[in-house]
């Protein structure tokens, strides 16, 4: 398929093209899905190397499943997020028992200015507050408010109803606000 056409092709159709041997379909799907998948996994695990491993594994499962893909049955994006979400959950379960203090803080590349320091502090506080949420609540909040997924898509990823997603995100957001409330002044919120 011509490269200018491939950009307009749906994820669904790209996966079918990939299964039929199209050499460009995989590159396009990778370019569409990975930039969204990586931040989600990184926010779940707070470890970039581990997040990259999970993303690679989730994408590998997508490639393997491509020949059996039923067009229209699901979205490749929600399918791969569901796989990644489950893989993240497995990793977190394995980590259970490790204290929060032992989990690496996000590395700040070059905090030169005061505002940059403050921003890093705010994001770190957000990550910490997210860590306090129950796992499903955290996944729903991140997918909804950071990754920008719609509620039906989150329902598809987490395999729950749209109402349950609404409840999870609302409760999650309230809990986040409550966790961050004490640091409002300090973080410049």
């Amino acid at each position: 398929m011509a490269l200018d056409q491939i950009g307009e092709t749906s994820d669904d159709a790209l996966l079918v093209l990939y299964a039929n041997g199209d050499p460009d379909a995989a590159s396009e799907l990778t370019a569409r899905l990975v930039p969204r998948l990586l931040p989600f996994c990184n926010r779940m695990l707070r470890d970039l190397a581990e997040a990259e491993d999970i993303v690679q594994e989730a994408m590998l499962r997508l490639w393997k499943m491509a020949p059996d893909w039923v067009p229209g049955a699901a979205k490749p994006s929600t399918w791969v997020f569901r796989v990644a979400s489950n893989l993240c959950t497995d990793r977190l379960r394995k980590r259970r028992g490790i204290g929060l203090d032992e989990i690496a803080e996000p590395v700040d590349e070059a905090p030169s200015a005061e505002e940059r320091l403050l921003q890093a502090e705010r994001l770190s506080a957000l990550d910490h507050a997210l860590d306090q949420l129950p796992e499903r609540q955290r996944q729903a909040v991140v997918l909804r408010h950071i990754e920008g997924f719609s509620n039906p898509d989150i329902a598809d990823v987490l395999e729950i109803s749209v109402e349950a997603v609404e409840s999870l995100t609302a409760r999650g957001k309230r809990a986040l606000a409550s966790h961050l409330a004490g640091r409002k002044e300090e973080l410049g919120l």
């Binding site: 930039p35 990586l38 931040p39 990184n42 926010r43 970039l48 997040a51 921003q119 705010r122 994001l123 957000l126 408010h145 950071i146 990754e147 920008g148 957001k173 986040l176 606000a177 961050l180 919120l189």
Partner: peptide, 14 residues
């Protein structure tokens, strides 16, 4: 909180 979420989105790893 939305402003904080926006900030987090922009600071996501590439």
């Amino acid at each position: 909180l939305d402003a904080l979420f926006d900030e987090a989105r922009q600071a996501s790893p590439v």
